[in-house]
């Protein structure tokens, strides 16, 4: 038996909106640690890892580890029917082939349940090694989204370079080229508006902008984003989910053939 009650149901709505473009079908894993997911996009170029820790739920019952295969588009369709202020409860029976999403309005005057069919998904689980990154950039998530959107109107790829001068996002296309440099800026009024660059070694990597733009669908989840870079490693673009966990996107770089 599984029963997870999330008072801030809008978080789950936002999580689905952030990953459904990248991943079609995925197994949600439920254990005493929390509600998690790991899945690759269909081209096996990007990977998404989600964790919603059990402590973040008002009620968390998971009698035994369960893996539930869901079509994310269908799940998103159901969660769209929940109000932004609704409490969402996820329920499933051991060995069952459905999951139920229950939505309660804040005043308890409307209670809905939506039952969705589960599916068998044969997906491989990847081991993500602990890595020391050469550089970690923390910046406002809206700023990062703006940069990715702006650059994708000029080119298809972005070169992200971190030096002691700052972080540079560059692109080139048929009509010309563009460079955007963000300097470390910690003297802002609010910490979430700061750009913080933690660099051990200079790093420069090239990525497909199409994927970066897809990751920025997670912007509503967090005011800040952290971008961890090492030469010859996938970049990690992380959006922390307040009090609960994170959505991390890993993207393999473009490399010399």
């Amino acid at each position: 038996m599984l029963e997870l009650r999330l008072v801030q149901g809008s978080l789950l709505k936002k999580v689905l909106e952030s990953i459904k473009e990248l991943v079609t079908d995925a197994n949600f894993d439920c254990s005493s640690t929390g509600f998690s997911l790991q899945a690759m996009d269909s081209s096996h170029v990007a990977l998404v890892a989600l964790l919603l820790r059990s402590e973040g739920f008002e009620h968390y019952r998971c009698d035994r580890n369960m893996s539930m295969g869901m079509n994310l588009n269908n799940m998103a369709k159901m969660l769209k029917c929940a109000g932004n202020d609704d409490i969402i409860t996820i329920k499933a029976d051991d060995g069952g082939d459905t999951v139920t999403f229950m939505f309660e309005s804040p005043t308890q005057d409307k209670i809905s349940d939506f039952e969705m069919k589960l599916m068998d998904i044969d997906s491989e689980h990847l081991g993500i090694p602990e890595a020391e990154y050469h550089a970690i950039v923390k910046m406002p998530s809206s700023e990062f989204a703006r940069i990715c959107r702006d650059l994708s109107s000029i080119g298809d790829t972005v070169v992200i370079s971190v030096t002691k001068e700052g972080v540079k996002f560059s692109t080139k296309g048929d009509i010309g080229s563009a460079n955007i440099v963000c300097r470390q800026n910690t003297s802002v009024d609010k910490p979430e508006e700061a750009t913080v660059i933690d660099m051990n070694e200079p790093v420069s990597l090239t990525f497909a902008l199409r994927y970066m733009n897809s990751f920025t669908k997670a912007t509503p989840l967090s005011n800040t984003v952290s971008i961890s870079l090492s030469n010859e490693l996938p970049v990690v673009v992380e959006y922390k989910i307040a009090e609960m966990g994170y959505v991390r996107f890993y993207l393999a770089p473009k490399i010399e053939e």
Partner: peptide, 14 residues
């Protein structure tokens, strides 16, 4: 010219 690497190049199955 650069080619797009895949995730499997860096992370193995577990």
């Amino acid at each position: 010219l650069k080619a797009q690497a895949r995730i499997a190049r860096y992370f193995g199955s577990c």
